[in-house]
């Protein structure tokens, strides 16, 4: 499989505390990867290291074969990545419409199929609240807006960090429906979520982190056939 993103030997520290211990990670073009692990195992730090938010002390990151280690986060993102952060990241001074339009651009490879109209079709609830300020939405609507805003950048890779955390079951189902739709359009995805059952059905590959090290990297059939892996590393 052609690789979209590849990281090797990542070692990331917060001060003197080492969080990632030589992590290798890759995402293929159009591949959906579930990044799993208990709290505090380094999932968010790995995502931040990939995007240059936190600079790894060792290791390198490449996007579409070109090394991006040490580059500005905005420059890495511009190579075709959209990041939906934990906490949704709304701006209180921008309306729903402005949130979407501010992010609108062609993708790194010229992709332009995610338009304003298409995002509103995908999230009809947002179309009803275009003039609401970003923070004057329910949690589920904020998450939809956060994903919609990410799609407006026409990414080749969508990163979802705890996309359904704290949401009602009905809203979660809506979010997962959209993530499946995104997958069908050929956009690669990294998903971090606690809902292992959904991830097993959704992802093409699963990576489990324990104490900053990759302890499992394989397909869903392996996890389904050997329940001891999830039991040992995730506690299920």
């Amino acid at each position: 499989m052609e690789l979209f993103l590849e990281a090797s030997g990542l070692q990331t520290f917060y001060g003197a505390a080492q969080v990632l211990h030589g992590v290798d990670f890759r995402v293929g073009v159009g591949e959906t990867v579930a990044l799993m692990g208990r709290n505090g195992m380094g999932k968010s730090t790995l995502l931040k290291s990939l995007l240059g938010v936190v600079a790894p002390r060792q290791g390198k990151v490449s996007v579409q074969g070109r090394e991006v280690t040490g580059m500005e986060t905005s420059a890495i993102i511009r190579r075709g990545i959209a990041y939906v952060p934990e906490g949704r990241g709304m701006f209180h001074n921008l309306s729903v419409r402005e949130h979407l339009l501010m992010a609108a651009r062609k993708g790194a490879g010229g992709r332009a199929d995610w338009t304003y109209e298409r995002v509103l079709e995908t999230f009809p609830r947002l179309a009803e609240r275009l003039d609401n300020m970003g923070t004057h939405l329910s949690g589920g609507e904020q998450q939809m807006l956060s994903i919609g805003r990410a799609l407006m950048t026409n990414p080749d890779l969508l990163i979802l960090d705890e996309a359904t955390e704290g949401l009602a079951p009905l809203i979660r189902r809506e979010i997962w429906r959209v993530v499946r739709h995104v997958k069908e359009t050929g956009i690669a995805t990294i998903v971090v979520d606690k809902n292992v059952g959904v991830l097993l059905d959704l992802a093409d590959r699963h990576v489990i982190l324990v104490k900053g090290e990759v302890v499992f990297d394989g397909g869903p059939h392996q996890l389904k056939s050997d329940s001891s892996i999830l039991e040992r590393f995730i506690g299920l």
Binding site: T73, S74, I77, A82, P85, F91, L94, E98, M102
Partner: peptide
């Protein structure tokens, strides 16, 4: 306007 609220978040949008 978004930078005025959260610069890091804007960087994360590219």
């Amino acid at each position: 306007a978004a930078i005025g609220v959260n610069e890091g978040r804007v960087r994360g949008l590219g």
